[in-house]
Design a protein around this nucleic acid. Sequence first.
DNA 1: GCATCCCCCATTTTT
DNA 2: TGGGGGATGC
Length: 740
Amino acid sequence: MAESAILEGLNPAQYEAVTYTGGPLLVVAGAGSGKTRVLTHRIAHLIEDHGLSPFEILAITFTNKAAGEMRHRVGWLVGPVAESMWVSTFHAACVRILRRDAAYIDYPTRFTIYDQGDAVRLCGYVLRDLNLDHKRFPPRSVHAVISAAKNDNIGADEYAERASNIYERRIAEVFSTYQRRLASAGAMDFDDLLLRTVELFRNNPEVLERWRQRFSHVLVDEYQDTNPVQNELVISLGAQSRQVTAVGDADQSIYAFRGADIRNILEFERAFDDVRIVVLEQNYRSTQNILDAANSVIVNNTGRKPKDLWTDRGSGPSIVRYHADDETDEARYVVSEIVRRRQDEHMGLDEMAVFYRTNAQSRAVEEQLIKAEVPYRLVGGTRFYDRREVRDAMAYLKAVTNPGDEVSVKRALGVPKRGVGATSVAKMDAYAAENGLTFHEALRHCAEAGVTGRSATGAGQFCALIDDIASLQASPAAVLQELLERSGYLDELRSEKSVEADGRLENLAELVGVAGEHDAMDDFLEAVALVADTDDLADPGSDESAVTLMTLHSAKGLEYPDVYIVGLEDGVFPHIRALTEPHELEEERRLAYVGITRAMRQLTVTHAWSRLLYGSRQYNPPSRFLKEIPEDLVHTVDGSRMARSRYYRRSRRERSLDRASINRDEIVDRALDAGRQARPSPSGADRLGLKVGDDVRHSQWGEGVIIDIRGEGDDAQASVRFASVGDKQLLLSWAPLQKI
DNA sequence: GCATCCCCCATTTTT
DNA sequence: TGGGGGATGC
């Protein structure tokens, strides 16, 4: 067989990753190593050269955007047949499976999907109904606990069995009630979409068999970001055909905080005993300097598999490091460089991006960009579908399609104001619970629930509206428009006549526009529930070339010739909350790795001597990640001397201990404070009488301060920052340490 | 039932 | 510094 064009121009590793068909395949794809290329070409190769029907392929990506891109690129290689291929997120694939087999799990085919906001709300209702103190049990965090359990493949029953203290037993109670309420609302939260599919497969071998037959090839991108449930899903689907491809890079795992588990990559290797592993190390994106910097940062993480990115494109310019006075000076420098490169080097603004650790940091940069009249695009922030008016409108639609949906009915009932307040709602809730009714049914019989007067009138009007609209046979857009009009929602906004209200009206008009793209209401609801990407929405004024501003997390998967990473200070990046937790610190380091490897040609890193944070001025030491970049790769630019002298003057007192940890007291205090909420202090360290923040003396290295303690008893280890030699890891039972 | 004020708190984010 | 939520007052 003649080699098809699909295999042209691949390097040997890529070639193998594309053509290997001997069974399970794990592609370890370093940043910029042509991962997407491998995936799309592999799919195209299967279709074109092996005669596979696209219908048999399941390709999983992490975001809808990535799915769209992949479909497009495969289509480009093999033509329109690509359309029949399932390329989607885990969640979207699960919805399709569940809708088809809803009967097996006792759910209506048209179940409602609760996004995080809805789910938190329902959690709140449950907490209130169980009379739990909302100070000790905030809905957000309770939901987070439940969600984490579900991501870990632990359902309500199992959680209850495992609950080992009063707090967990309470949560277990909430958990099972929450699940019951979801079921009676005919709703699933995001985690359920995955968990229910796994359960469906687990409990119904014939169903699993059918889907296994259907998908002879499964490919999963960003495997390092999968959680245990997703992992089980992949393994069970692929167990028979064994034609499973996982692509990922453990060094780019930055979502452990939301349940992703790097160990899934290992788990994958274990589940299929003869996994072929292909490592892609050749980078086609960055200069060697940038790669060297990235490599030498990430190498500080423990327990990772060695992987060194390289390129044949030459070393390129030095990495620029700028010491700013404060966040304003930092932003001013970045913007001045952006302006300079645009003029002197004729670079386009869309070739440049600024990354930061937290969204709040965008502000200083934005101010300077505005001042310099440089157009910019801010990625992130409040998403379109998270806007209040959009959520309200969607609640109306969901209430109409599924009156059992408690959360949506309650939300819609509240806006615009109808005189039905918390007390009436509580009465109807109680009535519903007593008589085994849904909230909506109780609403219909509000008189019997003891609701009278204005509240009763409002409730009646609301029910009538919902009924009227439900009987309407019209397109999603028409239904939505009708609802907004007749509920009085639009009138309320129109009469407000503020800039804000006008914005809301615009957003609603846009939502009606999106609805117009769907013929069936179910399609529209599902699309909105599963698509959070604002990028998919038409954004008129965005043709203009603009600098991109975003968090390091959002930057994953992207690349820019000119990258600025700001705020490289201990306490900012790595974030203060990661300082006392080695695992989190390593995740921050991976985040740094992701950030650095976004840069194609020029990387600029900045830090400020002082920074206004949370309304007060803070003095943070340079980020440890900066120190991990070899000096010979870096060209240092200093900010104004004045700021530095101010900085030193302020900290003369602390400087006697150590230049690098000048304000160690503050840092340690705040790290401790942040860490304290997260976990109790280890008992082993207590016995030794040492805790984070204690000053200690070492027989060889002199004075230092404990910045972290982990492990128990004789195994207890401490990270100690010494004035003489920097950070050291010490086994407490051995180390010649003395508390000062 | 609803508006207002004040206090508290503070990552990262996709589905 | 600023937003969200709870308590308070009308």
